[in-house]
Write a protein that binds this DNA or RNA. Structure first.
Length: 235
DNA sequence: AGAACGATCGACT
DNA sequence: GTCGATCGTTCTA
């Protein structure tokens, strides 16, 4: 059920794709929070100018990226929000997957409270609870104190998604047609290691990253209404 | 010691 | 679509 170290100890692009459709679990004092991962981005400090650790830059902030796979990398962004990543690959290889959007499953009223959303949730506010890297950290109560936390432990971890939510597969199984009609030069249709239809597209807000702005290292679950931004067709 | 800059969000035109 | 909030990290000197 719970993903083990060897899941994370693989190439960062593989892990970023394979995390789509998995369930993120945070066991907190006020309740258990569960959400399905629907959007990720890969960052590789060996070859990717968008990565904090490029080129092999080991600082106090990025040191967890140089540690073993399966640990949380949480940092402050724009002075007011957090971003949550999971370290991949072996130790001494700096890389991580940024979690960018989630489909809330369990503990949604607690999440709404953390997000300062009034109850009851409407369909629209529910979809936006975790539709961005900063929002999902608020909703799932992931803070900088979680930086370095072992995701193979018992409080913050990822597990296979239960059968009751496996309609993920059915809703996205026959979706190759979408690739044909729109001339998406900057999107690519893929199948995740666990068989889900996903789209690879450019990463968000890394305009400074030179050639890496064109890497198709963002992965989204096809047709999910819980994404931060739909995979674009601009450029 | 000081300055520049975000892997964002929500309010607003 | 634009813009400001807000502060830790990093670099330069």
């Amino acid at each position: 059920m719970k993903l083990q170290r060897d899941f994370y100890n693989r190439p960062v692009l593989t892990v970023a794709q394979d995390l789509i459709g998995k369930t993120l679990v945070h066991v907190t004092p006020v309740g258990t929070l569960k959400s399905i991962i629907v959007e990720t981005e890969a960052y590789d400090g060996t070859c990717d100018k968008g990565c904090h650790a490029y080129p092999y830059k080991n600082t106090p902030r990025t040191s967890v990226l140089f540690g073993p796979a399966g640990h949380a990398y949480v940092y402050l962004i724009y002075g007011m929000y957090c971003c949550f990543n999971i370290v991949t690959c072996s130790a001494e290889y700096p890389a991580a997957v940024l979690i960018r959007a989630l489909q809330p499953i369990e503990g949604t009223e607690i999440m709404a409270n953390y997000r300062r959303q009034s109850l009851p949730l409407t369909s629209a506010t529910y979809k936006k609870l975790c539709s961005g890297p900063g929002k999902l950290c608020q909703a799932m109560d992931i803070t900088r104190s979680d930086n370095g936390l072992d995701m193979c432990g018992d409080t913050l971890y990822i597990e296979e998604t239960g059968l009751e939510h496996q309609q993920l597969r059915f809703s996205s199984i026959q979706h190759k047609k979408q690739a044909a009609d729109s001339t998406n030069l900057c999107c690519q249709q893929l199948q995740s290691p666990s068989g889900l239809s996903i789209t690879a597209s450019p990463r968000i807000n890394i305009d400074y990253a030179e050639e890496a702005v064109d890497f198709l290292w963002r992965f989204t679950l096809d047709d999910s209404p819980y994404l931060s931004v739909p995979p674009g067709r601009k450029k």
